[in-house]
Design a protein around this nucleic acid. Sequence first.
DNA 1: CGTTAGCACTCAAGTAGTGAGAGTGCTAAC
DNA 2: GTTAGCACTCTCACTACTTGAGTGCTAACG
Lengths: 347, 347
Amino acid sequence: MKMDARKQQVLLAIITDFIATAEPVGSRTIARKYDLGVSPATIRNEMSDLEEMGYIEQPHTSAGRIPSQLGYRYYVDFLMKKKNLTSKEEETIRRGYENKVRQIGEVITRTGEMLAQMTRFAAVIMTPRLELSSFKRIQLVLMNPGQAMVIVVMNTGALQSNIIEIPEEVSQVDLDTISQVLNAKLNGLTLDKIKVTLLREIYFELSRHKNIVDLAMHLIQTGLAVNREDKIYLGGIINILNQPEFHNIEKVKSLLSLLEQEELLRSLLESSDPGEGVAVRIGSEMMREEVKDCSMVVASYCIDGRPMGTLGVLGPTRMDYAWVVSVVEYMTRNMSETMEKMFRGWR
Amino acid sequence: MKMDARKQQVLLAIITDFIATAEPVGSRTIARKYDLGVSPATIRNEMSDLEEMGYIEQPHTSAGRIPSQLGYRYYVDFLMKKKNLTSKEEETIRRGYENKVRQIGEVITRTGEMLAQMTRFAAVIMTPRLELSSFKRIQLVLMNPGQAMVIVVMNTGALQSNIIEIPEEVSQVDLDTISQVLNAKLNGLTLDKIKVTLLREIYFELSRHKNIVDLAMHLIQTGLAVNREDKIYLGGIINILNQPEFHNIEKVKSLLSLLEQEELLRSLLESSDPGEGVAVRIGSEMMREEVKDCSMVVASYCIDGRPMGTLGVLGPTRMDYAWVVSVVEYMTRNMSETMEKMFRGWR
DNA sequence: CGTTAGCACTCAAGTAGTGAGAGTGCTAAC
DNA sequence: GTTAGCACTCTCACTACTTGAGTGCTAACG
């Protein structure tokens, strides 16, 4: 069986209607609301074909049809027309970034809030990936004899801190010395490269201060290594509960238990890392039972063309993809620009 | 009408049973399960009295009784016997803190996880209140000409960072000078006191560096002032959904929308700030419609006897208060000790 | 040969009626 | 003061019935 123009029209009608109403769509409804110029009987025939091809399915015999996962996929790939945001909506988004967003965390929070509010779904955003950020500055603070805090500032403005054990006799002045040497050597490198290349140089440099050289090594190894997980913003879960498909509490529970586990959320976001532009992951494409009735629309935000992190929206498979894709796209562009503006010269 | 010993026994039986089963309790059940030595009929009379006094209520005519909010209050204040944790449970908790918890954030996360897991309710923890922490160190990092990052380290190990605008010509060396002066002057003060006392001294000190003195003032005012909100840990929401009283999705929605708004959550936690020991807030005592069917068990964790923040558990009013109070108490003590050990000498 | 009208068939969901079970409150007897 | 007995109430689960939406099939139409 082959897909022809009319089948496409029917499929489009079914999906459009189902997205809007969350009710199975019957042949009669299509004939009435979407002017295809044919009778319900004809549409029934087409629907029967579409069902055989796997694009739609029937919840039960006497109900209308609903799109299958495959149907959504076809829709997203071939049928969907992007909706442009109204200039008022674009305005709202731009406004959101104007109001003193200084810190990277603020940009992310603001983006997440807007994303959740506009799409009415849950928003998920990863902070810029640390392994792609580069080292800006290190600072050692003596907390008390024997313990120091290592503070690492990345060029994205991200802060990493860590408490390490040091010999009792090391003073703040010693720490400052180490800071200085490290700063000179490490500036501008990505975390990946730090360990491999420069240990020898630093060793040599610090050999004047024999007593602290071991410390510095220790510090590089432990202080920089741990705690490298990126944080995740998650908001607007409440929106998902407003969707009729989540009136069933069991689904809510399973979804929520997934979202509460940050590692799972991260793997979800990472596995659906889009190359370029906006990607749509539908239901079981995400390979997780808990979200088989959900879809994600994700995109990467970039700084100087380099993708730094992922942001996205999580909602039921029955979502208005055209709209959500447009919002995510516009949002991503604005967020990227805001960050770029913020980081100009920080590298 | 006066409360007598037998009424107390009956009330205790009702609450105990209801906590365990979530079903209204009838006179027959009490007579059978709780050996009061009287017949159901007598218990019925007592129940009738208790209802009149407001301690219990009837969902409908032919159902048993359930505790009213007042009933729970009476139970918590007068009837409840603390359950001691088994040594195995205590062991689990202690273990949780042994495994390299270095940072304040880790202590909080770990505590939250354990609290949620043990009580099977949602856990809420506030980070140590900044206004009670004292200043440890300030560090200024030049991000690019015209912008600097202010990093403030508190004695609790908490980090605050902020981007500020500075004159283009200010160099990292200038910033280091300012850092040095500020560090010397500010060390050990609480944030509250910083502004008022020392501006003049610092002004004098920096007058050698005329060009940056204004900057330093600006920095103190903006850099330290903003972003002073304490963060909140929230976890284990999923547990609440497992309670039968939350099978109604509307309640879930209303609760979740409250929990998603951090300020509301904070006000909830702050308003039920316990003086000493563990406090229980039942239903509408929290003054919020969304949690009228919930209770909180909260306590303050202390460092050197000074209460630094609040932690607590949020669950349905029908919770095993005796058990939860014990867990929260033990947990608070352990968390306080862990933090104290960690901070020894940091102030 | 594609399209359409007509019709029998199916199924979910709502409605009404029924009976069982749990629990109470009252009364009278102990 | 306590208890047994009993009538009464109300929820809940179960069943039967009706309604309406929607399909699939068949035969007729252009």
